[in-house]
């Protein structure tokens, strides 16, 4: 690693680094394009994983082993895995439709994307082509990890802590919004359930089944009480109560 640091500081690219780059760079590109092109969401996520892995290796060969490995652990190992988790819950076999909702949207996106990439690429190239990298040896003088730790916990400690506070707030907020847990006092045991059942105003017996004394045995047809009224309790709440008309009950002529 020390030799690598020296070489990188001198501005030349050693052979191993060049070979690694030319093998992994096409892979990273294929992954990036495949992520956009793949129609299955899980395939898309896996393509992104390939790109992230390649980026991690790039960081390592550019004398930043810590950031490279952390990229693999945090982004590829944890965050993309959570993505996959959600995608798998959505269900397999769910693919994007190929129908364009806006006409010409795909072509426009392609042209704009390539144009934007060209702009950024040429801008970066013109700005950085003549400059040489300096200060890598000084930054990595006491070790890569120690150098990052020194910066992170002295100069950038406020930004670092604020970021972590923001992330924790977001996580706790999501928990508060999404998580419903009944408190221990609210949990009903058997005795409490029975008391609630026999509370005045609640009918303790079983509810009348749907279709009892009714014109049809459908689940949606409410039962009739002995005095002829409809028993509202007999149908599930999500089903609308309706009486079948004469037209509904007549034979449709399909039975021969």
């Amino acid at each position: 690693m020390t030799t690598q640091t020296v070489l990188a500081a001198a501005g030349s690219v050693p052979g191993g680094e060049a070979v690694t780059f030319w093998i992994l760079a096409p892979l990273a590109l294929i992954g990036a394009i495949g992520m956009v092109a793949a129609r299955n969401a899980v395939h898309s996520a896996l393509m992104l994983v390939v790109t992230m892995l390649c980026l991690g290796v790039f960081y390592v060969i550019q004398a930043g082993p810590f950031i490279g490995v952390v990229q693999i652990i945090v982004y590829t190992g944890a965050i993309m895995m959570l993505f996959l988790f959600v995608l798998m819950l959505v269900g397999r076999g769910v693919s994007d439709s190929v129908i364009e909702t806006l006409r010409g949207q795909r072509v426009a996106a392609l042209v704009l994307g390539v144009g934007f990439a060209g702009l950024v690429g040429t801008g970066l190239h013109r700005a950085l082509a003549d400059s040489t990298a300096v200060g890598l040896t000084a930054a990595n003088a006491e070790g890569n990890v120690q150098g990052i730790a020194r910066l992170l916990f002295t100069k950038y400690v406020l930004a670092f802590e604020l970021t972590s506070a923001l992330l924790i707030t977001a996580a706790v907020g999501a928990m508060v919004l999404a998580h419903i847990e009944r408190r221990r006092e609210d949990r009903m045991d058997q005795a409490a359930t029975m008391k609630a059942r026999f509370r005045p105003g609640n009918y303790p017996g079983p509810k009348p089944g749907p279709g009892v004394f009714a014109t049809s045995s459908s689940v949606a047809t409410p039962a009739r009480l002995p005095d002829g009224r409809l028993a509202e309790q007999s149908t599930p709440e999500i089903l609308p109560v309706r009486e079948l008309t004469a037209e509904d009950t007549t034979l449709k002529g399909t039975e021969k």
Partner: peptide, 12 residues
Amino acid sequence: SVAVLLVLACSS
């Protein structure tokens, strides 16, 4: 210099 993290990366 980050060998232990490499093992963690492999397991993740």
